[in-house]
Design a protein around this nucleic acid. Structure first.
Lengths: 228, 228
DNA sequence: CCATAGTAAAAAATCGATTTTTTACATCAT
DNA sequence: ATGATGTAAAAAATCGATTTTTTACTATGG
């Protein structure tokens, strides 16, 4: 039995989730045009749920929808990554400050648990996809009690955008190690409710991730059109 | 010839625009369930474009999509309005500070023009819909050169959410007059590049609008289900 | 009399086919 | 030879019908 989340119509929602994952994981080339027929076969689904999923993704910003020319994977633009990272820094900074004020005992417990799972995932080399899950959950949990559902929504959206770049970028073990250390320090500062220090560290954390993600932007590439 | 914006497929996009307008204008009761068949007749369209438009609106946050039970207009919740207004204040504050640094001569010219059109619209009583247009354009133009496409996107989204409340709220001519005065003051402070004062005024402007919009929330209402 | 199971009507979601629009190609005129 | 125009193939968008799921009602048993 699958542990599906099952919001709204199943096929369209499953498809939305699957496509979103594949887009963020970089399983489609940036700038690539998505042929409806090809997707229909790839995911073994009918037209209606497919089109509904694509429309949702376009509204979310993970796809571009052109005049009468279907859907396209957005190109990876350095300027846009910088925008996304800058905004992430500012919004997560806001959210963290509030989260440290609002978060209670249960949150502290959950944060320690999330960090523990992340650390274990760090130490397990093969399971990259599992690490990604734990990493996302850790950052989510950190900001969760900030009190603003809309702020969290935007942060999640930016995170998804950012990850598309980061996962396309070549691995950088040096920075990766530093980022991992920061997770632990973030927990300590959060527990100590040291707002300025925690905030500064989180912003530095995002700056460092940004450096890694930049590797995804070969701005000198001459407009890749198709793939396959 | 209509001046349609024509993004993506026509019927679905026209429909998206029409539904979005009707939702923000409050032409559907908050909490109301949207029957697909009824909408099909109301807008004289087929199923596919309708469902695509509804899916986009749900992804945007102007509709809720329930398990296998179709689409619903979100209820007007006081707590959510407060969240939206708070975040608007903070995000527009950020954007304004940057816009005042980045905006050039053309921007100043456009701002004066937008303000002039807004003032004219203020003085014309009957054309409420026209005033709404000019008001939106004024605020858009004010923040436009802030340099962050994603920040502007989120601000627009919050503005749409906020307006749904504001337009449902009963008119308040006293506050309305004060808000109108603030528009002129905003222009002056923007031209003077007085970042702290302009920012403080914009935040106060949003706080005041928030007061008006709160009139839309009768939290004691006993869960309205259907209308028509 | 209330609760539960079964059934029929209604609504939403999905499918395959049709229509419209775009793109690629070939023909003709300059 | 080059550019424009018309035509055919391909792709996307839309439609109406079918299938699935939900909801409301009824009958039956406790």
């Amino acid at each position: 039995m699958e542990a599906e989340v099952a919001t709204a119509n199943m096929t369209a929602s499953q498809l939305y989730a699957a496509l979103k994952r594949d887009l963020i994981d970089g399983r489609f080339a940036a700038g690539q045009k998505l042929a409806i027929t090809a997707l229909r076969q790839r995911y073994r689904v009918g037209l209606s749920p497919l089109r509904e999923a694509l429309n949702r993704l376009a509204a979310y910003g993970l796809l571009e929808q052109e005049n009468q020319r279907g859907f396209r994977v957005p190109a990876l633009k350095r300027a846009e990554l910088d925008d996304i990272a800058d905004l992430r820094r500012r919004l997560e900074g806001l959210a963290l400050a509030q989260a440290l004020q609002e978060g209670g005992d249960e949150w502290e417990a959950g944060l320690l648990a999330a960090f523990h799972r992340l650390k274990r995932a760090d130490e397990t080399p093969g399971k990259l996809e599992h690490w990604e899950q734990m990493h996302l959950q850790f950052h989510r949990h950190l900001l969760e009690p900030c009190g603003s559902a809309w702020l969290l929504r935007f942060i999640e959206q930016l995170h998804d955008q950012f990850d598309r770049y980061r996962r396309m970028a070549p691995a950088n073990d040096t920075i990766r190690a530093r980022l991992n250390v920061q997770h632990g320090q973030l927990v300590d500062l959060a527990m100590a409710r040291d707002v300025p220090a925690a905030r500064a560290l989180l912003e530095e954390h995002i700056r460092l991730s940004h450096e890694v993600a930049r590797g995804a932007c070969q701005e000198d590439r001459t407009s890749v059109e198709e793939r396959d």
